[in-house]
Simulated assay, not measured.
Amino acid sequence: MFLLRLQKYMAKCGVASRRKSENIILEGRVKVNGKTITELGIKVDPDKDVVILDNKIIRMEKNNVYIIINKPEGYVTTVSDQFNRPTVIDLIRSIDERIYPVGRLDYDTSGLLILTNDGNLTYKLTHPKHEINKEYIAKIKGIPNNKSLNEFRNGLKIEDYVTSKANIEIIETYRQNSQVKIIIHEGKNRQVRKMCGKIGHPVIKLKRVAIGDLNIDKMKTGEWRFLTSKEVEYLKNL
């Protein structure tokens, strides 16, 4: 639940400054869900509560927010968690707007995540029909041979679906493990991990580094920033 003090809500609706809004409340000119409010300290839910000023409903103007974060491992990509695990929202400070993660990254996966309150952009970035590339760097057990790599590229039967064609390249090998770059345009639950497991090379560590041309570059783990207007326009035009 996202709550705002009534005077702050009124200010965001363009009624007046917070201080002037406090005076308006004390004058008894404001109702919340039909009840006249004459004292300060009341909080409202912008999504649920009905606020009336001088017999007219007031609504908060929506300010679209676009954020990119380099998500650490150990955070869930939800607004709240029933098991009280830390969420990516805990990492974002000083944002009044109610924002949501676009898609998901597993609890144990790090990397690029977008957060916004723009429903149209969220739909565009998450709907399979738009086929937006997502790039991952994965450390996996073993070193896959050409047969396994081609199976990965051509689509794998996982549970009740077959994955679309994907790309996988070995970028580094170790004694018993390897590091690969993977590009997919789907986003099913734990898909990259399941695909790697299917070819017999389970994921040890996984990081998403890019969505389309948008990447986390040199962002530190846990660091976030607002997307530039150019980046937002790019995502909208994908």
Results as ranks from 00 to 15, higher is better:
6 L>W: 12
91 L>W: 03
230 K>I: 02
132 I>N: 14
150 N>P: 00
56 K>S: 05
89 I>C: 14
81 D>T: 15
221 T>C: 00
145 N>R: 15
10 M>A: 12
167 N>Y: 04
227 L>Q: 01
134 K>F: 04
45 D>H: 07
221 T>A: 06
56 K>Y: 01
191 Q>Y: 03
199 I>G: 10
218 K>I: 11
207 K>Y: 05
17 S>T: 13
142 G>V: 03
61 E>S: 11
189 N>M: 04
125 L>P: 09
139 K>Q: 08
192 V>N: 06
80 S>Q: 07
233 E>K: 14
87 T>N: 00
195 M>F: 11
141 K>S: 01
228 T>F: 02
73 E>R: 15
93 R>S: 11
82 Q>I: 11
193 R>A: 05
220 K>R: 13
105 L>D: 08
214 L>W: 13
187 G>I: 06
26 L>H: 01
177 N>M: 02
143 I>W: 00
153 R>K: 12
96 D>H: 15
137 I>V: 12
149 L>Y: 00
74 G>K: 12
220 K>Y: 01
133 N>D: 12
140 I>N: 04
54 D>M: 08
85 R>L: 02
130 H>V: 13
141 K>P: 06
205 K>L: 10
30 V>F: 10
151 E>N: 10
81 D>H: 15
136 Y>W: 14
11 A>F: 02
141 K>W: 09
217 D>Y: 08
58 I>D: 05
163 T>K: 10
211 I>V: 00
209 V>P: 08
196 C>N: 07
106 D>E: 07
10 M>S: 01
128 P>G: 14
36 T>F: 00
104 R>F: 00
201 H>C: 09
92 I>P: 03
167 N>P: 05
13 C>H: 10
43 K>R: 12
181 K>P: 15
219 M>E: 10
232 V>G: 05
17 S>G: 03
216 I>K: 11
110 S>F: 12
48 K>Y: 03
133 N>S: 13
83 F>V: 07
116 T>V: 07
54 D>Q: 13
145 N>T: 07
